[in-house]
Structure formats: C-alpha cells, structure tokens
Computed example of a mutant assay.
Amino acid sequence: MFAVTVRDHMMIAHSFTGEVFGPAQQLHGATYVVDATLRRAELDADGVVVDIGAFAGLLHEVLGELTYRNLDDDPALAGTNTTTEALARVVADRLADRIHRGALGPGGQAAADLAVTLHESHIAWATYDRPL
C-alpha cells in the first residue's frame, strides 16, 4: 500500500460537556497540527498516489471551515463534544465527501482509505481512519 500525507493546522475555540473534562468544560482554545493520509494499492500512471498540491489545498480548504471559530456556535457540530477524536472524524468525513465528489480527480477516487490525525501537543494526538 502506498501513502501520501499532507500537513496543515487549525486554531479553534470550544468547550466540553461532562465532568470528566474538568476545567475544559469552559470555553478554551486549541491549536492542532493536522495530518491527512491517503492510501492506495497502486500508483497512477504518473507514479503518484495523488496530486500532493491538490491534496494539501483540499485539507487547507476543509480546515478553513473550522479554524478561528468557536465550534460551540457551529450548527453542524451541535450536540457534539468536539474532542480531538471527534474532530479527527469531522475532518476525515469532510475530506472524504469532497474526494467522492471528485475534488482530487481520478487519483482521489482510486484511494482505498483516508486517515486524519490531529496533534494536540507534541506528546498527544488522535487519529480517525476510514475507507473511501
């Protein structure tokens, strides 16, 4: 299996519901380094998994919908504790939706799966893997 990963970042504000979150139940900010990885069994005719520039641009577009926003105010996320794990899934699903609609052309359509990792610090991160 071949894989290509692109990296970007996002800065958000949010709060959590639940005693387990302690002081994070209050509004606070978070900065995530975000990695998105596409995998496919074979390279295309040009010898690549996908156009890396297009993939980086797509990740930037998806993160642009979330960054510099208070996620508590986003109707699409209502009722969701926007934990690192949950946000990894949100980003992955939004990327997958665009890939299915052709945003990365045939290279994206040939990808088998997608993984999104949100690094919340240099010692902690969460990943969501999904098929395409």
Rank of each mutant, 00 (worst) to 15 (best):
A3R: 15
V4M: 10
T5Q: 14
R7K: 14
R7Q: 15
D8N: 13
D8M: 05
H9M: 02
M10V: 13
M11Y: 06
I12K: 08
S15C: 14
S15G: 09
F16R: 09
F16E: 07
T17Q: 15
T17A: 12
E19Y: 02
V20L: 11
Q26S: 03
Q26C: 02
Q26I: 00
L27A: 12
H28R: 06
T31W: 02
T31C: 07
Y32E: 05
V33F: 09
T37F: 05
L38G: 00
L38C: 04
R39P: 00
R39Y: 11
R40V: 05
R40A: 03
L43R: 14
V48S: 05
V50M: 03
V50Y: 01
V50L: 09
G53S: 11
G53A: 14
G53M: 13
A54N: 06
A54L: 11
A54Y: 04
F55W: 04
F55P: 06
H60A: 15
H60F: 10
E61S: 15
V62P: 02
G64Y: 15
G64N: 12
L66A: 08
T67C: 02
Y68T: 04
D72K: 02
D73R: 13
P75M: 11
P75H: 07
L77I: 13
L77C: 04
A78G: 01
A78P: 02
N81D: 12
T82Y: 03
T83V: 13
T83M: 11
E85K: 12
A86S: 10
A86Y: 06
A86H: 13
L87Y: 09
L87F: 12
V90Q: 01
V90T: 09
V90I: 08
V90M: 07
A92E: 02
A92W: 07
D93K: 13
R94K: 12
L95H: 09
A96C: 03
A96F: 06
I99C: 04
R101D: 13
R101Q: 14
G102A: 04
G102T: 11
L104W: 07
G107S: 02
G108A: 00
G108D: 00
Q109S: 00
Q109I: 01
A112Y: 04
D113I: 08
L114R: 07
A115V: 11
A115G: 10
L118R: 00
S121C: 03
H122T: 14
I123A: 11
W125V: 00
A126V: 08
T127E: 15
D129F: 09
D129A: 08
P131A: 10
L132Q: 06
L132V: 11
